[in-house]
Design a protein around this nucleic acid. Sequence first.
DNA 1: TAACTAACTTAGTCATGCCTAAATTGGAAC
DNA 2: GTTCCAATTTAGGCATGACTAAGTTAGTTA
Lengths: 148, 148
Amino acid sequence: MRALPVLVHVSAKTNASRSSAAVEDYLERILELINTKGYARVVDIATSLDISQASVTNMVQRLDGEGLLKYEKYRGLVLTTAGETLARNIARRHQLLTDFLKLLGVDERVIEHDVEGMEHHISPSTLRAIETLTAQLKRRPALLARLR
Amino acid sequence: MRALPVLVHVSAKTNASRSSAAVEDYLERILELINTKGYARVVDIATSLDISQASVTNMVQRLDGEGLLKYEKYRGLVLTTAGETLARNIARRHQLLTDFLKLLGVDERVIEHDVEGMEHHISPSTLRAIETLTAQLKRRPALLARLR
DNA sequence: TAACTAACTTAGTCATGCCTAAATTGGAAC
DNA sequence: GTTCCAATTTAGGCATGACTAAGTTAGTTA
């Protein structure tokens, strides 16, 4: 009697768990819209990200397929628990990076540009390191003064 | 007699001057290969970047078109002055970011991954700020010790 | 309830940057 | 000089994520 074959190491990462930069941008903005306006329609997302409504419809359908939000044609969308958790993490990362660069005296416009580019490529451990550094810097005004 | 119309602010950025992440990756690696092996063939670049030779041929032809290197079919390539200058700047940025994260105690593997992702999105002014910060940190062992 | 219109969806296209498979080139060895 | 073969190029394709144009939906207003 042979042992049954066993699936070793069943994908620790599901398809949905590795999100692209575009997916992260959408989720981040959707959460922000919901927090400020109370809702996020296709047209709101499109305006906010400065892309076409058609592109947003496509992506929103995809995010629904990935279980990050619930979407009903013509009716609107809400983030799922998974989607909201992910969006919050993305937003937090964005905020931490912004705070860090602010501390260094980088110009606001440049901060926005750079953070939007960088944020999708920063690992949790790097983020933690920057968080720690930021905290330490905040209590060293003398050092901060030297950074300009 | 009317004044002639004048073109104000003639594009400070030529087409070639805004390089994509892919272009930067290629230039960076080509310079590195030339510095270590003395040359950079299509096959070397392909192996080093872990992409196909066909893709490298395409990109190399494009970089030639953009004036960043001189390429002769089947014969090889050399960086132009513009290409080498750009490549050096990219390499320097890469090094600065690596040094910075090293100082924070981030794991080498993570540094490599994150720097490769981030480097294409960092403005000169942000880079300068990080450079200054790194220099200051280097002379504060007590503070550095706290970052772990 | 019929028309209007903002919001939305569908269909088809494009650029980037990668791929594989199938030629082609040219230097080395015979 | 032929043959061989590693390096290279060409041709054709694919995924992502954007676009425009054209058609659909549904809430509002007359």
